[in-house]
């Protein structure tokens, strides 16, 4: 396993469309629920232990079970009741595949797999293991909205990165758990939901003007 390859995969500058997605933060800001660094900390922690947990498990699964993409993809559909979030996940999966095809040799994954499935497949193609796939997935679910918060709210970037540093041990634990469960049936994989992320995404999708795609 190459640590440097993991950095390439998890780099926030990877041209995979991530900068245009706020992970639900734009909607939470508009609803008045995230105004400062403290609110953002609560948002990121909840997102990590719901969306992050699920993404990590499915990225690890897609990395370990390279023939099971369709089952995992359907499993994410069943865990994503918001159609806006299904679209956002597939748009990011499509963008990630485009970037991945330029870097590694990828198997056939369809046009728009869910993002965690695409991420797991990229990790496998890059010679990484399920744990690394899960780390990249869980980290991405919080680093994206953290960056969006800096841009949207003008929050102190040092304070925001301090939040991410405090979440790092939790990301490691989530990734280790995810890597230990890659043989579980898809129905048994984590399904932690976040009602306000679903509802915020549905509302956000109806806005006339959005700065972020989701």
């Amino acid at each position: 396993m190459s640590l440097a390859t993991l950095l390439v995969l998890a780099d926030g500058r990877l041209p995979a469309g991530g900068h245009a997605h706020s992970g639900g933060l734009e909607a939470a800001v508009a609803a008045g629920r995230v105004r400062d660094v403290g609110d953002l900390g609560g948002f990121l922690r909840g997102r990590l232990h719901t969306t992050g947990l699920v993404s990590a498990a499915f990225a690890a699964g897609a990395c370990a079970r390279t023939g099971d993409f369709r089952d995992l993809d359907r499993g994410l559909d069943a865990r994503t009741p918001s159609p806006a979030l299904r679209r956002a996940s597939r748009a990011q999966g499509r963008a990630l595949l485009r970037a991945g095809r330029a870097m590694w040799s990828l198997p056939e994954l369809g046009r728009e797999p869910h993002h965690p499935v695409a991420l797991g497949a990229l990790a496998a193609a890059a010679g990484l293991g399920p744990r690394e796939a899960a780390v990249a997935a869980a980290h991405g679910t919080v680093s994206g909205p953290a960056g969006a918060a800096v841009r949207l709210l003008g929050l102190d970037p040092y304070a925001v990165h301090a939040l991410l540093a405090r979440l790092a041990p939790e990301i490691d634990r989530i990734a280790a758990d995810a890597a230990a469960r890659t043989d579980d049936p898809v129905d048994d994989l984590p399904a932690a939901g976040a009602p306000l992320l679903d509802l915020g995404a549905e509302l956000h999708a109806t806005w006339e003007v959005r700065l972020f795609a989701s």
């Binding site: 995979a16 991530g18 245009a20 748009a91 963008a95 841009r151 959005r210 700065l211 972020f212 795609a213």
Partner: peptide
Amino acid sequence: VETGCCPHTAIRDDISANLD
């Protein structure tokens, strides 16, 4: 396309949304 407050990024550094 939404640029996530990064108009610059969307046309140069990460062109995914525009290509899509």
